[in-house]
């Protein structure tokens, strides 16, 4: 099967211009990205502030187009502006700030905004809105104003807004950066469930290590390049490199690392509490 997303030598340059329109400064935000994502995968993209991960996300949604190289989303070339609407329909996007992406004053109307734009008939819009609000557990808030919801709830409404467009893929650009731990948990659980139950391809962009442990595959970006890739286990076993890229490892992996340094024979790729506790109990009983 052909991969759902194929990026080849993707380059994006931002240029700053002076008053006369002459280019004064060029910044290379993406510098030769190669990436393949299969349909149905849960992908995490890790990277520090300014590593280019947000620029990359905007390419997946045809909000930005490559300066050089190509990006295919579900077989469509994003450089071709005729594909813009189709790309956005198959790959929806959730942004960082929950307030700045909710358009309507009523939750259900906001969820209906995408389908309205796509020209979906009225009765079908209602079906989709109901279904997607139920999917993210926000159905009972459908008549409310978004201003009365918490950050995590607003993000779930935004996810429902994307789901109502029936995409094959959701791109989440640091969806939890402005949330408290409870809201963060709720958003990640919602996304994980959509991936498992609805088989939606998920591309989660974040710098919270704990959110990455459940991903199928992780890309680490630094300075516009993909600098590491692998399963979460493979990535978190390379803590020194991560630190170089202004990232870190989950606290549990840190404990395991300390213990390994003291000479305790623990596996390198411990990701969560259960694994660590299990490994330690085994060691003790041995």
């Amino acid at each position: 099967m052909k991969p759902f997303i194929i990026a080849k030598d993707l380059v994006h340059e931002y240029s700053r211009r002076d008053e006369d329109g002459n280019v004064t400064d060029i910044k290379r935000a993406l510098d030769g990205i190669d990436m393949e994502v299969s349909a149905g995968d849960f992908i995490a993209v890790l990277g520090a502030n300014g590593s280019g991960k947000s620029t990359f996300a905007k390419h997946l949604n045809a909000l930005l187009t490559p300066t050089e190289g190509t990006l295919l989303v579900d077989g469509m070339d994003t450089s071709d502006h005729d594909n813009d609407l189709d790309v956005r329909c198959v790959a929806g996007m959730v942004f960082q700030n929950p307030d700045n992406q909710i358009i309507s004053n009523v939750v259900e109307e906001d969820v209906g905004f995408g389908p309205e734009n796509m020209g979906v008939p009225t009765e079908k819009i209602w079906e989709r809105v109901e279904e997607s609000l139920k999917n993210v557990g926000m159905y009972k808030y459908r008549k409310m104003s978004p201003n009365h919801l918490s950050g995590g709830q607003k993000q779930r409404v935004a996810i429902a807004g994307v789901m109502a467009m029936r995409p094959k893929c959701i791109i989440l650009d640091e969806p939890t950066a402005m949330l408290d731990p409870v809201g963060r948990r709720a958003v990640i659980d919602t996304v994980t469930e959509l991936n498992k139950k609805e088989n939606i391809t998920v591309i989660l962009i974040t710098h919270y290590m704990e959110e990455v442990t459940g991903a199928d595959y992780v890309f680490v970006m630094n300075d516009g390049k993909v600098s590491m890739q692998g399963t979460p286990r493979q990535i978190f076993a390379r803590s020194e490199e991560l630190k170089e890229y202004r990232l870190t490892i989950p606290e549990v992996t840190k404990i395991a690392l300390h213990l390994r340094k003291m000479g305790i024979e623990l596996p390198k790729d411990i990701l969560n509490e259960e694994e660590l506790v299990k490994a330690l109990i085994e060691l003790k009983n041995f």
Partner: peptide, 20 residues
Amino acid sequence: IGLGVPQSTKVIHRLRKMGA
């Protein structure tokens, strides 16, 4: 009350529960 403890503490608590 919607908060938690550090992951390290969680590990210790779990180990203690198992008799450590």
